[in-house]
Write a protein that binds this DNA or RNA. Structure first.
Lengths: 131, 131
DNA sequence: AGTTGACATTCCTCTTGCTGGAAGCTTTAG
DNA sequence: CTAAAGCTTCCAGCAAGAGGAATGTCAACT
């Protein structure tokens, strides 16, 4: 099948598929006579796997490792699990950061009158060295 | 004062300060005879403002707007407040996304044996079209 | 005076994960 | 036969700087 069909069936864009090939995340597709890339079911599976892993939040480099494990039948499931657990830890750290941000922003908003006047507690706060 | 002192006192790096100048987030610094940038207290205030706004989570473009309001004494505080409120909404959306990700990852991890065998529910899940 | 080390300057490349566009093929539909 | 759609490659750009090279300058020490 052509790249656009592979894209449609995998949920990736054609640009993304070519990009994945260019960074060697997937192996170079076979070409047929006209020079067009040709995808088999097997490669489609890989593309689908990537689409899922990416939308689950794994980075491309993490996907590279997962894909390695996915394709390697001699893997140990403990390797996969520890990858996922590390990922969870990173996500939780980011969550804490965002929550702190939200708290800060909410405090700022609360103290600003939000009227037509120029005085604004938000700007004061951002400008204040003693904060 | 030289750029490194301005950096030290504002909490930004010299690289960042030059970068902000290059994208016209701040106006070009005055140069003294040797060609070095020279910063006054007034400009230091602006740098500090930016440092705070960035670490509060505002993007550079958002900082540009905040700075505009900060320096414009004819501003209306409602403008500032609505900027902050929009930001809060974006942060909350991102929080939800991350929480969903964490949930998904936790479910994946939970179902994987994590032993020396090759079988792994995580990979199955990522590969499964029907998921 | 010379030298060393810590500053300063500009410019260029790299990062992440693509997306958009240009120029030029081929294939398909009318 | 022509026009549109689809394919190819390559180049540029987004965010927000970080890192480094090549070069210039300043202050201190000998």
């Amino acid at each position: 099948m052509n790249i656009s069909e592979a894209a449609r069936l995998s949920g990736l864009s054609t640009k993304t598929i070519r990009y994945y090939e260019s960074i060697a995340l997937i192996s170079a597709a076979v070409r047929n006579e006209n020079g067009y890339r040709d995808y088999s079911e097997r490669e489609l599976d890989t593309l689908r796997f990537l689409q899922r892993a990416r939308s689950t939040g794994f980075s491309v480099e993490e996907c590279r490792q997962l894909l390695d494990l996915y394709l390697n039948t001699g893997r140990q499931s403990s390797h996969v699990k520890s990858l996922v657990q590390e990922k969870i830890a990173r996500v939780e750290a980011q969550l804490e950061q965002l929550q702190a941000m939200r708290t800060t922003l909410a405090k700022l908003a609360e103290r600003c009158a939000g009227d037509e006047g120029p005085h604004c507690a938000i700007l004061d706060e951002l400008a204040d060295n003693e904060n």
